[in-house]
Write a protein that binds this DNA or RNA. Structure first.
Lengths: 215, 215
DNA sequence: CTTTGCTTGTGCCTTTTGTCACAAAGTTGG
DNA sequence: CCAACTTTGTGACAAAAGGCACAAGCAAAG
């Protein structure tokens, strides 16, 4: 069986895709693994190997056809299936994510938002009405939403996550600092900003030690 | 020379620290590598090895003294040196970070904020006055700020980062999607939320393939 | 058509990261 | 004090990730 790409490889693929978008605007037609590596901070061989997991996209002596490669990566990352997302927790961070333009640009769309705060429920945010989180299950059960973004306080996280899973959400982006447990078939990605700062804080005093990886 | 801990090890250390805080609230006195592993989703041996990079904190047959270990990790992550941070770019995301309580809780404090928008400059946000980004250098040069948070549009990122470095900032948390180049001695951490979503999107269709690592 | 010059795809090696398993150290109960 | 349990710290092993280097493929020039 052919070896598969790893988690960090996927991150790099997404990065390559970003760079391709820039290059398109610059009117380039072909790009080499060398250049792609340069622009993303990766080794050229790494780039070629990453891409080779999904097929032979390049032409020796020329490089990769830009629009062609873009299509391929778009397909790999499922950019066409417009992904609908639900956001739970319309606090500061949640609100910011709602008006975060880059989600739209990259084909992601938040279509339902929830909170447990009486004062917020019914209000509008980014063109959507904030709904009662206790109504989450009945409301989402028909929507076929596959991605959930959770920006609620730690204490509530597990409950919200469980409910999202019940209504068919299969991937969750969790901004709460608490670790959540999910079944194996669920994709969970934690984003903990204060941990990022802890990392910075550590490396500030131990700079020489470890080369910073470009996550 | 003794081997040093790697980048992902540092992330785990920060995670352990979070769990210790919870455990303290629960009134526990000792914790085993087994339990710490359980709660952070790591192998017990991994936990012990991570900790052993910094000393022999545990007692065989007992485990780790909770408050003691907490102190040690706090020291490792430099939690005491109250870290001052500057935030550049007071848009949606920037504003959210300003009122993100967890930064305070974890000992990080934003003490200066900048934007280039005429209409924002002079306004208050989270108890701070938004200052003109063109004044960044003169204002920060005296402050001894070591961490910068950058939430400006892609086009402006490199310039802002360069200026931060000029005034002595040594670690940067960059939320812009564009890759920035910095000298070797600078710690740069990119956080790109739309790339996180791309990852989710990919794994949704390739679930079986790769076990999701608990970042 | 041949030669020269790039650039890809990939086997192999190196380095890093994670896990296992066990000796040493401490604890508890009789 | 001794025997039976725990749990640590770590050397040895396994798996994964990254990089090197080269054969094979394509292009362009003569």
């Amino acid at each position: 069986m052919k070896k598969q790409i790893g988690p960090s490889g996927v991150t790099r693929i997404a990065l390559y895709y970003r760079v391709l978008s820039s290059l398109t605007e610059e009117g380039v037609r072909y790009v080499s693994s060398e250049e792609l590596g340069e622009r993303t901070g990766n080794n050229a061989a790494q780039v070629r190997k990453d891409l080779s997991y999904f097929g032979n996209f390049g032409k020796p002596g020329v490089g990769y056809d830009l629009t062609d490669l873009q299509d391929k990566l778009s397909q790999i990352l499922r950019k066409e299936d417009s992904r609908k997302m639900a956001l739970v927790g319309v606090g500061n961070l949640g609100s910011a994510l709602l008006s975060y333009d880059r989600f739209k640009e990259e084909g992601f769309q938040i279509t339902a938002i929830f909170d447990n705060d009486r004062r917020k429920i019914g209000c509008q945010r980014g063109g959507l009405v904030i709904q009662d989180v206790t109504e989450l299950k009945p409301i989402l059960s028909k929507d076929g939403i596959s991605i959930g973004i959770v920006t609620v306080p730690s204490a509530a996280t597990q409950k919200v996550v469980d409910e999202l899973i019940e209504v068919g959400v299969r991937a969750i982006l969790n901004f709460a600092p608490s670790r959540v447990t999910v079944p194996d078939f669920i994709i969970l990605q934690n984003v903990d900003l204060s941990i990022e700062l802890d990392r910075l804080s550590f490396f500030l005093e131990n700079k020489g030690s470890i080369p910073s990886r470009a996550k």
